[in-house]
Amino acid sequence: MKRLFPILAVLTALLLAYALYQALVVAPTERTMGDVQRIFYYHVPSAWTAFLLFLVNLVASIVYLVWRNPKADALAVAAAEVGVVFCTVVLVTGPIWARPVWGIWWTWDVRLTTTLVLWLIYVSYLVLRRFSDSSQTPKLAAVLAIFGALDVPLVYFSIWFFRTQHPQPVIGGGGSIDPRMLRVLLINWLAFSCFAVLVCWWRYRLERLQREVEEAHALESLLAPGGPSARSAKAKVPLGRSPQ
């Protein structure tokens, strides 16, 4: 696995460079918006990737709640954190596109507002994970993740069910797109998805390593002079296995 990671990282970097070239050079220029429409090749794949990561977070949270699997809990944290990064990209690139096209940076439109709420929910999830020391934290966070995931379909389908300023979906929902633009969009989505999988994988390993170090620290403090005896400490805190 350790040897596979750098190879996949290089391949992903090449794919991202190719996708950037496709977005900036190969994709045709949109007639009404001009070059600013090319933001779409980063904005939309980032949104889809964020949704995918929040889905991974949901599944991992359910697995944790049902089987109390710590690996699933670590994966849930990793997916939520990387998902928030992609969602941040969506919330930053959207207004940069809106300013020249709509003439405003932001409007309290259904799509925009539900996306902001989605981001806030997952930021709350990460804050809970970061600052709560309770043994119930993973369970509470998993429940929050399930409620947070309910906002994902709301974000996606908001432009189908409500009158909104946001452009209609390009795939399904009555929207249309030039096939050359669709190809570039899908290449960018593939590149961002590969990048997200790699970053999520790295973050997952980091999470497991962190837990192992915390367990070792707890064991060390129990074995310290004045602490409980070595035998009882070993019985209470089992040393975690390697994250690999």
Partner: peptide, 26 residues
């Protein structure tokens, strides 16, 4: 409409966000 600067701003912002996050992981 001078849209090219918005295009560059969006692409640079995207990679800046990812770079900051990757830096925090490192």
């Amino acid at each position: 409409m001078n849209s090219i600067k918005f295009l560059y701003a969006a692409y640079i912002a995207t990679w800046l966000i990812h770079a900051i996050y990757l830096g925090s992981l490192v």
